[in-house]
Structure formats: structure tokens, C-alpha cells
Simulated scan of single mutants.
Amino acid sequence: MTNDITRRSLIATGTGAAFIAAMPRSALALNDASARALVDKVVGEINRVIASGKSLGQMIGDFEGIFRRYADVDLIARSTLGADANRASAAQIAAYTDAFRGYIARKYGKRFKEFQGGQIEVLRVSAVKSWHEVQARVNLRGEAPFDVRFLVSDRSGRDLFFDLLIEGISLRLSERTEIGSMLDRRQGNIDAMTADLRRAG
């Protein structure tokens, strides 16, 4: 396993700065302890799946469940669709969100499988404007550890993570680029792109 696979292939190119600047600054009940508690659950479940010895298909199913329980999937999916979300119908958004959830589980589940023999460790949490950032470290056998950060908010009414940054690279922004490219290949046809997304990852 190379550093390129474990570090950079998890998330494509992009940064989180533009998205972070656009987050609302409302007062939230979320605090350091509850943000860390959420990420402790996420990390604990990911570590258990990594160590389970299950097949890749089973692991991907488990990762999709983790994403469904602990991520703000609606917000993440809509933001990756970008401005095109404004012209989509409610039915198209629902279908896209469902397809996106499976796509993310397949794409990142395959990458997390490469962590077998390693572990993710939660380190610290800090408040950032209207959300909390929880820093973790991925420890892999025979390689230098690297940084993973979960951005957590309760804007949906629950404590959920709305982005994942690996060495500063944002899942949301990088996937927005990927989805935009897929949509361009379909000449802006959201239904056709959604169908492609169900097979991608």
C-alpha cells in the first residue's frame, strides 16, 4: 500500500475553505463533548468493520449504514449537486440522494478496507463558528499516520458530520467536482447522471 493510495486516493482534489466560509453562523446546542461523542461512535464502528474480516461487499454495506446514521446525507448530497440542485424536482433530489449514499459507501468503503491492520484514533475537538471540528489520526502499519477531520453540526436537528477532510482535502468539495463532471458527460441530464451514479464507485 502506498502513501498515495492511503492519503490522496481517499479524496480527490479540492479544499474545504470555500464551503466552510459559507456555513451559517447560527447558535447551536452542539458542544465539544457531543461532537466528540458522535465521532467516537463513527470511528468505533469504522474500526470494527475494518477489523471484522468481512468480504468487501459486506463491508461496503456496513459503511453505507454508518454513513446513513451519522452523516448529514441530505446536506452533503445536495451540496455536491451544486447549483443544479435548484432546477431538480423533489423526486429527482430524492433519487439522487439515494444513489449518492450508495456511491459514497462503495467508493470510500473500498478505501477504508485498505486500513485493515490499522486504526483510526480520535484526538481532539474544537469549536469553529457554528460547527465543531473533530481531529482524528489514521495509524497504519509501516506508514506514517495522517490527519482526518470530521466537521460536525446539529443544523439538521441531530448531531451529524457534514464533511470529512483528509489532510485538508474536503469530501464534499472533491465530490462536487466529480458529480459536476458526471453531469457534464450527460449534458446536464440529472436522471441519466443519477443512473450512472448507481453504478459508480
Rank of each mutant, 00 (worst) to 15 (best):
1 M>S: 13
2 T>R: 11
3 N>H: 12
3 N>T: 08
5 I>A: 15
9 S>E: 13
10 L>P: 00
13 T>N: 12
14 G>W: 10
15 T>L: 15
16 G>M: 08
16 G>W: 06
16 G>R: 06
17 A>C: 03
17 A>S: 14
17 A>T: 07
19 F>T: 00
23 M>Y: 07
23 M>D: 01
23 M>F: 14
23 M>I: 09
26 S>R: 07
26 S>W: 06
32 D>M: 05
32 D>N: 14
33 A>Y: 02
34 S>D: 08
35 A>E: 00
37 A>P: 01
37 A>G: 08
37 A>W: 02
38 L>R: 00
38 L>D: 03
39 V>Q: 07
40 D>A: 07
41 K>F: 03
41 K>Q: 12
42 V>L: 07
44 G>K: 01
44 G>D: 05
45 E>S: 08
47 N>Y: 09
49 V>L: 14
51 A>P: 02
51 A>F: 06
52 S>K: 00
53 G>T: 00
55 S>E: 08
57 G>F: 03
58 Q>T: 09
58 Q>M: 04
59 M>W: 00
63 F>Q: 00
65 G>Q: 06
67 F>W: 06
67 F>K: 00
71 A>S: 14
72 D>L: 08
72 D>C: 08
73 V>A: 11
76 I>M: 15
80 T>C: 10
81 L>Y: 04
83 A>F: 09
85 A>N: 02
85 A>Y: 01
86 N>C: 02
89 S>F: 11
90 A>F: 08
91 A>N: 10
94 A>L: 09
94 A>K: 14
96 Y>E: 03
97 T>D: 09
97 T>W: 10
99 A>G: 10
100 F>M: 07
100 F>Q: 00
103 Y>L: 14
103 Y>V: 00
104 I>F: 15
105 A>W: 09
106 R>Y: 10
107 K>G: 04
107 K>A: 15
108 Y>T: 01
108 Y>S: 08
109 G>K: 07
110 K>G: 15
110 K>V: 10
111 R>S: 13
112 F>Y: 15
114 E>N: 13
115 F>W: 13
123 L>R: 12
123 L>C: 04
124 R>P: 02
124 R>K: 14
124 R>D: 15
125 V>H: 11
126 S>Q: 12
130 S>T: 00
130 S>F: 03
131 W>D: 03
132 H>N: 12
133 E>F: 01
133 E>A: 15
133 E>I: 01
133 E>R: 13
134 V>H: 13
134 V>S: 12
135 Q>Y: 12
138 V>W: 14
138 V>S: 11
139 N>D: 13
140 L>Y: 04
142 G>Q: 07
142 G>L: 09
142 G>C: 11
143 E>I: 06
144 A>E: 14
144 A>D: 14
145 P>M: 13
146 F>K: 02
148 V>N: 06
149 R>C: 10
151 L>W: 12
152 V>S: 05
153 S>Y: 07
154 D>K: 03
156 S>R: 05
159 D>T: 07
159 D>R: 08
159 D>W: 01
160 L>Y: 04
163 D>H: 04
164 L>A: 06
165 L>D: 09
169 I>G: 08
170 S>L: 06
171 L>E: 02
173 L>D: 08
175 E>A: 03
175 E>T: 01
176 R>Y: 06
180 G>S: 15
181 S>M: 10
182 M>F: 14
182 M>G: 06
183 L>D: 03
184 D>Y: 13
184 D>S: 10
187 Q>D: 12
189 N>R: 06
192 A>N: 01
193 M>F: 09
197 L>R: 01
197 L>G: 05
199 R>A: 14
